[in-house]
Write a protein that binds this DNA or RNA. Structure first.
Length: 259
DNA sequence: TATTCGTGGAC
DNA sequence: TGTCCAAGAAT
């Protein structure tokens, strides 16, 4: 479950070292639950999207309270935990507990788009048709289904990659609709690129980096140095406070949240 | 359904 | 060098 949280939108090679340290420090959900949320945010480091650290901490607390300290095996109970959506619930139930669930992430969606639909890339947002296809292709036998889930994801992650796909190494190349069609390029407008420079996200990232590295509370002027534009800077800081990632203290001091 | 939310490596 | 993007979730 920890790895799945960290892998939400973050590449494996960057997750691995943080994951190892995390589990070494907090081997069980109850261990993490006893810590402050701010410590989770600090240990999250530079993985990005630090709200995930808060949610993982919240999930650990819920598991300690409501589930006897064990990660629930039930899909619906997993889904009810903070930070766990359809994908992560299915992934934990399937990979950790060997259950039969369609695990539909971006890798699997790309494999389906190519092998079955015959197009280079899947739609921007997951469609009902994709979910239906995932259910239809999932093997009936539970053990086989969990193997299938892992295998289809690995195929997309390691072979049928977004760029520079390696059809010569692909075990289903002979039946791939996209390859058989001559690998036509994606039609339509390119997915709108996320410009990062100058956004609130960049400002939030800089602010939180200062707080992660600080030992104690940080005075406002130290935060002000990370960004020139005062309106955007204030908006970013307010956002972090609203998200529970930053705790304001009397006297213009800020720190990672203790509660 | 469309946006928002970080980061750093590859090209 | 700027663009693209990597095992999503919440709203």
């Amino acid at each position: 479950m920890v790895s799945e949280f960290m892998l939400q939108q973050t590449p494996v090679n960057r997750v691995l070292p943080v994951y190892e340290q995390w589990l070494s420090r907090w081997p069980r959900p109850a261990d993490l639950a006893e810590e402050s949320p701010g410590e989770a945010v600090r240990a999250w480091g530079r993985l990005g999207y630090p709200r995930r650290a808060l949610r993982l901490h919240g999930a650990a607390a819920a598991i300690a309270e409501r589930h006897g300290g064990d990660v629930p095996t039930d899909h619906a109970k997993l889904l009810a935990l903070p930070g766990i959506g359809e994908y992560t619930a299915a992934a934990v139930a399937s990979f950790a507990y060997g259950q039969r669930h369609p695990v539909l992430d971006t890798n699997v969606r790309r494999v389906f788009a190519r092998a079955v639909t015959g197009v280079q890339y899947p739609p921007n947002a997951t469609t009902a048709a994709e979910r239906k296809l995932a259910r239809a292709l999932l093997p009936e036998d539970e053990h086989t289904a969990s193997r299938w889930a892992a295998a289809s994801m690995e195929l997309g992650a390691l072979v049928c990659t977004a760029k520079n796909e390696s059809c010569v190494r692909c075990p289903i190349a002979a039946q791939c609709a996209w390859r058989l069609a001559g690998k036509p390029a994606h039609e339509g407008p390119p997915r709108r690129g996320q410009t990062y420079a100058g956004t609130d996200r960049q400002v939030r990232g800089r602010l939180l980096a200062v707080l992660r590295e600080a030992v104690g509370p940080v005075p406002q002027p130290a935060l002000d140095r990370v960004w020139d534009e005062p309106v955007q800077r204030a908006r970013a800081l307010d956002g972090l406070v609203a998200d529970g990632l930053v705790e304001p203290l009397p006297g213009g001091l800020y720190r990672l949240p203790l509660t």
